[in-house]
């Protein structure tokens, strides 16, 4: 079986700090790969590299069969939920969904489906900047990430510090995604979530332990 993600001797140096040093791993289709580490260990950097939003210093990274330095085609089948609030702050919930759907070439029906699944009906007219809880924001972020029905979902601290209702809803959707054959890479800093993962890589001292 061809791996969905193939990372070989990946290094990332920002300024003088070596964030990732020659790490290598593979993620197979349907797997849920957890990247565990404390704050500042390079989890977000690794996920951003895998999502093709950050460049890297050296090594080879293949995602969905594409060398990510050479092509961006793999992004058509990718969903990304960031740790920081990265939705468009000048737009409302509905406009964010519409705009990201347009960016990802998703249809209006996909938008409606996500609104239903993530229970966003009541919030559509709200600007995202006034969404009061992180849980609601993460539901919207995940809905946006899922608009293009991705094969690979990359999510950074998606259920950290969120309300119980949103957490259960998100976990339910993530399980559904995996049950349908989706592959995930999650970054988390709470060891309790290890149980949800197929395998866990521990970001430690610029390297990775499995």
């Amino acid at each position: 079986m061809e791996p969905i993600i193939k990372v070989n001797k990946l290094s990332q140096k920002i300024g003088r700090k070596m964030l990732l040093k020659e790490i290598s791993f593979e993620v197979l289709p349907g797997e849920c790969f957890g990247v565990f580490g404390t704050r500042g260990t390079g989890k977000t950097s690794l996920l951003h590299i895998l999502a093709g939003v950050d460049r890297f210093t050296s090594g080879q990274v293949e995602v969905l069969g594409s060398n990510i330095r050479k092509t961006e085609k793999f992004k058509h089948d990718l969903g990304l939920v960031t740790q920081e609030r990265s939705l468009f702050p000048d737009l409302t919930v509905a406009e964010n969904l519409d705009f990201i759907a347009a960016l990802k070439k998703a249809s209006k029906a996909d938008v409606c489906e996500m609104i239903e699944r993530y229970e966003l009906n009541e919030l559509l007219a709200e600007p995202v900047t006034v969404l009061d809880t992180m849980g609601v924001f993460q539901r919207l972020s995940l809905a946006c990430a899922m608009l293009n029905s991705p094969k690979l979902l990359i999510a950074d601290e998606i259920i950290k510090d969120i309300d119980l209702y949103s957490r259960n809803l998100i976990l339910r959707e993530l399980q559904q995604f995996q049950a349908e054959g989706g592959t995930c890479v999650y970054a988390f800093s709470n060891i309790a979530f290890c149980g949800y993962m197929s395998k866990v890589g521990w970001n430690y001292n610029s390297g990775m332990l499995y």
Partner: peptide, 13 residues
């Protein structure tokens, strides 16, 4: 220069 750039980059447009 803003965070929403991540969404644009991740979309591959």
């Amino acid at each position: 220069g803003v965070r929403s750039w991540l969404q644009i980059k991740a979309s591959g447009m």
